[in-house]
Design a protein around this nucleic acid. Structure first.
Lengths: 200, 200
DNA sequence: AATAAAACCGACCGATAGTCGAAAAGGAGA
DNA sequence: TCTCCTTTTCGACTATCGGTCGGTTTTATT
């Protein structure tokens, strides 16, 4: 690995940590370069702008999560379990840092939005594939799969990411998922336990 | 009306216009005060910060939309039409300015998020009331109404606000709404026309 | 050793949100 | 009209921030 690439990676990782703890808007380039012990010019040798750095930080995060999701896809778990597993592996929450709080912070609205957008782009094809499998196996029955998957992702992220959800939210989510995919009642019931287990 | 209140209102309206045309981040306080013909100090006499001004601008917008929504609620339109009407009256799009573009602009992520949050808070009780009506009339059949309404709002705003939606998105949305509320197939079919008509 | 390419430096710039002490403007009572 | 107090206005000033630029050092190549 070349020296330049190493430095760039180092900067991305420093930024990752700082963006999540302090927020993107509240982290200045000056702070990043101080932490890294480099000069302003060096920073801009590696990144065209602060926002492009953010882009790279997000890429790094997404890739990590996409890997986990793909692993679930290729496993031989039951289809409904796969779906829940993929959705949950996409939530950036259970990492070592207090990411949830950081992303929910209003001042990270931009970062949050960008992450969600990329996450959808990555997750929709993966989940769609699983749903196709499910249709072949006869446990799902629906058309317009990508659209349905997107709505599922939307509701799940908006409901569960925020951390403030009730038993009733889970109930409605299960009901919605089953109906959206044309599954028999009860098919997705175990989501309840997975969410409970996945909780912090 | 006192002189001070008038000035404050004037500033909020100027900011409203400028935020929507140029974006919140891209509108400087200097530009606002130049437009208003006042000095910096005067601005900060009325608003503690630029962000608190944004808060007031959003309040103004929400109130306008909440009024429209309540008007629909109190009308004697058929229930399903009421629901669509309320949802559509909450979309800040069809105003005189090019608001949609401004809100979709990534740099307005903060503003967009804040608006959406407030809109949910205002709209959920109103829509829930309509759904209750529908249940009494026998065209809907469901429990956990507020949760279902919130998910409906979520999907509708995320799908249609972005402006990039297909015929298939509409189809899935109709299907989802009917199933979410426990309505007979076809109950919400006319949404298609309303969306088509409401389009720009 | 000579040369070129990659990596690094930090003073500097323009723009921005926000501060502050002082000065008008306005009104109420004498 | 003068006084006193409150409300409103002013604009120079500050601190911080993202970003630029010309030049220097390090590293690899021949």
């Amino acid at each position: 690995m070349k020296k330049g690439e190493k430095r760039k990676l180092e900067l991305v990782q420093i930024a990752y940590r700082m963006f999540l703890t302090k927020g993107y808007e509240n982290t200045s380039v000056d702070e990043i370069i101080e932490e890294a012990g480099i000069a302003k010019g060096t920073f801009y040798y590696y990144f065209e702008s602060k926002e492009l750095l953010l882009e790279e930080v997000i890429c790094m995060m997404i890739n990590k999560e996409a890997e986990a999701a793909t692993a679930v896809l290729k496993s031989d778990l039951p289809i409904p379990v796969k779906i829940t597993g993929i959705i949950m592996s996409l939530q950036p929450e259970k990492e070592e840092f207090t990411i949830e709080e950081a992303l929910l912070n209003p001042e990270n609205a931009l970062m949050h939005k960008k992450i969600k957008q990329k996450l959808y782009d990555v997750a929709t094809p993966i989940l769609s594939e699983v749903v196709e499998e499910g249709i072949k196996e006869g446990i799902f029955d629906c058309t317009n799969i990508p659209e349905r998957v997107k709505m599922m992702l939307l509701v799940s992220s908006e409901t569960f990411d925020e951390g403030q959800f009730t038993e009733r939210d889970i109930e409605v989510f299960i009901d919605l998922t089953e109906k959206l995919l044309g599954a028999k009642k009860g098919t997705m019931e175990f989501v309840r336990d997975m969410i409970a287990r996945g909780e912090r």
